[in-house]
Design a protein around this nucleic acid. Structure first.
Lengths: 220, 220
DNA sequence: CGACGTTGACTGACCAGTCAATCTAACCTG
DNA sequence: CAGGTTAGATTGACTGGTCAGTCAACGTCG
């Protein structure tokens, strides 16, 4: 589906026509519009207007309104999956891995709140329509985290009696709810709080999962 | 399924018109339809059909499609708020309070998965539509939980360095994500797992929040 | 001059909400 | 108690507006 991806070949193209990548322009505009009005409430013309292109051009690059959202979601989610896999392959403690993941997600929000809002509100939450379409992609993230927890249990760092899938969901859910808190303006969003939020999630979840034996005094 | 609520005032009503409560019929049908197709994707006629009443009757009892969802949400959320307040007023340990809340939410799902699905998917996380409308009602639940945590911190049971609002969000988020896991069929939903899920959330969150000093061996 | 990027008016489907008509039953009144 | 009155419950065809997606034409670059 996604057409050209790595085509932003810097401005030094053979024929420096590098005006602007309209496709990208549309995607970026869509993020803003979806975040502001919601996917269902906005019209395709809103996206076109926001991007400053003609209505029809949206359909030149995307087969449907849905595909615009699909593209945004997959782009971002795959970056995250890539990151999680990378973290997982490193020889560090679970606690560090989970901290890295929490950091990544929180920083993703900090870097582009609109995009994260769209992904959480419009995709992750939508059990019907989109959620169902991407359920396997979403699941992959949970599975990766679950895998880390299983490994930690085998190593005796985490309590074995806690079902890994449940722990993974709880961990991810805690983070997502913090983002939801920021999205809904229920939590203060100063820089300081972002950092403490990362710490809180890891501290809380790990604190409850770790065995007494593994009292690694690596507490900040 | 549960028919009349509190309005089947027995035969003693002045105007004993208490035939079948069509309003209730419509609400219950709406839950099923919203859960199956999603609020946006379904038509008002779907609700009427599911309820076995004429299209127009929906508008006799409700001003709009929105109001049907509003009603469902408020009905249920207020029951939960009531429960939380009640729990809060009891002289028991935080751990017990949180366990009671987790139990209540999980059991709510077990008792009526469709309704909880609708509330979570269509309201609680819908930042652009209903979520925004009901933000204050939703927030009240978070605030109540936050209050419990503050109190526990003052009593020296929970670590004081963790911002209560953040902890409350993390706690609620963990539970909600477990429900999401069941909704999306990502987690096994046998009876045994519901019980363990309650235990997991409380154990995990409290484990991380409690101070070393409060090592109350009340672990199951 | 051919290929592709770009435009925006148009259309066909869809659906929330309206409304006038019909039905039901409580409650008169003689 | 028959017949009449009325208020609410119930019906479903219809309307008005909205919008996703189409398409024929135009632009521009190489």
């Amino acid at each position: 589906m996604s057409v050209a991806r790595g085509d932003s070949r810097s401005p030094i193209g053979p024929r420096g026509k590098a005006s602007t990548d309209k496709r990208r322009l549309i995607l970026d505009a869509a993020v803003r519009v979806f975040a502001r009005q919601g996917f269902h409430a906005c019209r395709v013309s809103d996206i076109a207007d926001e991007a400053g292109v003609a209505y029809g051009l949206v359909y030149h690059y995307f087969a449907s309104k849905d595909e615009v959202l699909d593209t945004l979601f997959l782009e971002r989610w795959n970056v995250m999956l890539e990151f999680i896999r990378e973290v997982d392959s490193e020889p560090i403690a679970v606690r560090e891995k989970l901290r890295a993941i929490a950091s990544f997600i929180v920083d993703s929000y900090r870097h582009d709140p609109d995009l994260m809002k769209v992904i959480i509100v419009e995709v992750t939450r939508a059990a019907n329509s989109f959620g169902n379409t991407h359920i396997d992609t979403i699941r992959e993230a949970y599975d990766l985290i679950g895998g880390m927890i299983i490994k930690a249990q085998e190593d005796g760092v985490f309590k074995p009696e806690i079902e890994s899938r449940f722990a993974a969901m709880a961990f991810y859910g805690a983070i997502e709810q913090l983002l939801t808190g920021w999205i809904f303006d229920l939590l203060p969003d100063e820089d300081e709080y972002f950092e403490r939020a990362k710490w809180l999630v890891v501290e809380t979840v790990c604190g409850g999962l770790e065995t007494k034996a593994s009292e690694q005094a690596s507490v900040t």
